[in-house]
């Protein structure tokens, strides 16, 4: 591995000449951590805006939902909390999209809380500034739809659209999945193995290969996630002819729900491999987890929507409000 000069790595490498990869990532994360700042004193600001990072996120336990806080520390996830008289009154977490591709950069707000409108406006102003620094041109949001939803009203009044949509996620219990006929009839086979059997370089090679083929699952930062992000015993790989041909990666959320973050296979038999991977993962889950354990399946593209329809024909995603606006980049 070539030596890297830490000073030469910009905080936001996507705008520089440095390529964000495994070698540069530790420096980027270290700088990101160091940058978490508060509003300087004496600015006359109503709220104190805090940038979230791995070091301070625990102080907002109970305010930022645990499964949302789980994203903080990942390379493309950011968050702000607005403090009024030292009490958190507003917060938001967003994800940057298309940061490693030659596409228009986007931000997607995943969580927003606006208990105090003035503080929320100051927080949004900081958000806009950060997007400007990142060269983000479009900002969107995706928040759970409730009959009374002040966050939606807040964003709508600030130029975001507001449409009702169906969420991509469906949640099924382990028991429900184990009872799917297709899985009952399937044998996982010797080729389906636990992720723990892969050494680090084999896993990295498999993830890079999947990524080159466009399979990132839910994660733009898939190749940067630490190995322990995945549940190694229940996540599965499919190895045939000395090649990893499929991966099913599971992440355990703080709420104890399990989320499938990647389910991909390559080759002409990819459909059969996907089912075998599911079978192995569900078998190992039932040894380690109760049958009530909830599993989140994200139907983020047409293929996964079709798979969801086949496996859970009567399940619908939750309603969400979605909207977007152009930013000043």
């Amino acid at each position: 591995m070539e030596p890297i000069e830490a000073q030469s790595i910009p905080f936001r490498p996507w705008d520089g000449e440095i390529v964000l990869d495994r070698k540069t990532l530790p420096f980027v994360l270290a700088k990101k951590k160091g940058e978490g700042s508060k509003t300087p004193e004496g600015t006359g600001a109503y709220a104190d805006i805090v940038e979230l990072n791995e070091d301070n996120i625990a102080s907002f336990e109970g305010f930022v939902p645990a499964d949302i806080a789980d994203h903080i520390g990942r390379v493309f996830f950011f968050g702000l909390v607005a403090m009024v008289h030292d009490v958190p009154s507003c917060g938001m977490v967003w994800e940057l999209l298309n940061m490693r591709e030659h596409k228009e950069k986007e931000s997607r707000i995943l969580w927003l809380k606006t208990l105090d409108e003035e503080a929320a406006d100051e927080m949004l102003k900081r958000y806009e500034g950060l997007l400007y620094e990142d060269g983000v041109k479009t900002s969107s949001y995706l928040i759970p739809a409730e009959p009374v939803c002040p966050e939606k009203e807040f964003l709508e009044a600030r130029g975001f659209g507001a449409d009702l949509s169906e969420g991509d996620e469906i949640i099924a219990s382990l028991k429900q999945i184990r009872n799917i006929q297709l899985l009952k009839k399937t044998q996982a086979g010797r080729e389906s193995r636990p992720l723990s059997e892969l050494n680090q370089s084999e896993l990295e090679a498999a993830l890079s290969r999947m990524e080159k083929m466009g399979f990132r699952g839910l994660c733009d930062d898939l190749i940067f996630l630490p190995r322990m992000y995945f549940e190694n015993e229940v996540s599965s790989c499919y190895v045939s002819e000395d090649q990893i041909q499929g991966l099913l990666l599971i992440h355990r959320l703080p709420s104890s729900r399990l989320k499938i973050v990647l389910l991909s296979a390559v080759g002409k038999d990819y459909n059969r491999i996907l089912v075998k991977l599911m079978k192995r993962t569900m078998d190992s889950l039932s040894e380690l987890y109760s049958e009530d354990t909830e599993i989140i399946i994200d139907r983020h593209n047409l293929a996964t929507l079709a798979l969801g329809e086949k496996l859970f024909p009567n399940e619908l995603g939750k309603p969400f409000f979605i909207g977007s606006r152009k930013e000043k980049a």
Partner: peptide, 15 residues
Amino acid sequence: PAFYDALEMAGFTYF
């Protein structure tokens, strides 16, 4: 009824 139940369970019947 099956589709209505799915809509209700997800929360779409409010909207």
